[in-house]
């Protein structure tokens, strides 16, 4: 599926005509065949490539492909099946009263830190340099485009929620300093570790469930009907960031890397302690107060972040503890560039 899309994109759009019937049929067949689209490598890469046409910088293709009717149809078909699978596998948590304060309190309760093993604690204390690099490669699927997925959602939000998201995004994008943009600080950390910071450099190595974390948030941002899930997801993401990032910064320094690599993680300790407050009360809470019918989707969106991101990091931890690579293709076997 992913290959077929890349082949189509490799052709000039002018030769392609208005309809790529084969591609739409193949998409449909791939969806029907798949038992779990969240863990389907082929469909997740396909969706990432289709989303990539909206972001730019993911595949080398004519800009006009973005709104080609057959590619839009394929994207929407995969997204519908993906959303349905997520709704099957991720439950809606207990619902609070639809007030900003109660929504924030419920989100903080849902995301409260748990003791015990986690990928970030492992990175702090035990990970090898190779495992730290693997972690950074896994994270790069989202983080090289950090904050962009949520930016799609800005015009779709009512007043207070919109102002809140803007307040967070301004900080994500570096408060006016392009060097401080989170995606740029992350790219710097990748270079500091000797990794390729080109988007998709390691895409073939990343397991589907990690790609799903990113395609899910892109889908939430791109679809107005999912703005509740977007707000809940982003809140939970911010609420589960400061403490793990502090652990990871410890691991970075334990392994002898300097501030250029640690900066990204240090920055998130401080930034996300601010963002989580704004996100919980003003973004998610503000959205629910303006549109109470979105309450269940806000809480569900929060749970999708915890659950799907949790699957990805639990799987990575399991591999590392067993002495295996968490990537589909270990780093020493990839040339770095696809």
């Amino acid at each position: 599926m992913g290959e077929a899309i890349l082949t189509a994109l490799g052709r000039g759009i002018r030769e392609a005509g208005e309809s790529l019937g084969d591609l739409e049929r193949m998409t449909h067949d791939a969806i029907t065949r798949s038992d779990d689209i969240i863990r389907d490598d082929d469909l997740q890469v396909a969706l990432l490539v289709l989303h990539g046409l909206h972001y730019g910088g993911v595949v080398d293709a004519d800009d006009a492909w973005e709104w080609h009717p057959s590619l839009v149809a394929s994207r929407v078909a995969i997204e519908r099946a993906f959303e349905a699978e997520l709704r099957r596998q991720v439950p809606v948590p207990d619902l609070p009263n639809p007030s900003a304060a109660d929504v924030a309190a419920a989100l903080f309760e849902l995301t409260k830190p748990t003791p015990g093993p986690s990928a970030s604690r492992y990175l702090a204390r035990k990970a090898t340099e190779e495992q730290l690099k693997e972690y950074v490669v896994l994270r790069s699927v989202y983080t090289l485009k950090e904050a962009d997925a949520q930016t799609w959602g800005i015009p779709r939000l009512p007043r207070r929620a919109k102002a809140a998201l803007m307040e967070i995004q301004t900080d994500e994008y570096g408060d006016g300093d392009p060097e401080r943009m989170h995606s740029a600080i992350f790219a710097r950390a990748m270079r500091g570790l000797g990794l390729d910071d080109g988007y998709a450099a390691y895409l073939d190595s990343v397991p589907a469930v990690t790609i799903a974390s990113f395609t899910m948030m892109t889908m939430f941002g791109l679809n107005r009907s999912l703005r509740g899930a977007m707000a809940g997801h982003f809140s939970a993401y911010e609420m589960t960031s400061s403490i793990p990032n502090r652990f990871i910064a410890q691991g970075v320094r334990r392994l002898g890397f300097g501030d250029d690599v640690a900066w990204y993680f240090d920055e998130h300790v401080e930034a996300d302690a601010v963002h989580e407050q704004i996100a919980g009360r003003d973004l998610a809470g503000g959205l629910v107060e303006a549109e109470p019918s979105l309450l269940a989707d806000v809480m569900w969106g929060a749970n999708t972040s915890l659950t799907v991101d949790g699957w990805g990091s639990d799987e990575a931890l399991e591999h590392w503890e067993a002495g295996r690579s968490a990537l589909r293709v270990p780093l020493d076997m990839t040339g770095g560039i696809r």
């Binding site: 307040e167 301004t170 900080d171 570096g174 408060d175 006016g176 300093d177 401080r180 502090r246 920055e267 300790v269 401080e270 930034a271 302690a273 601010v274 407050q277 704004i278």
Partner: peptide, 17 residues
Amino acid sequence: RHGRNTVALCRCGASAI
């Protein structure tokens, strides 16, 4: 303030920063 427009000040006393 590290360029941040909005900051969060610790009031629990336990922050490391």
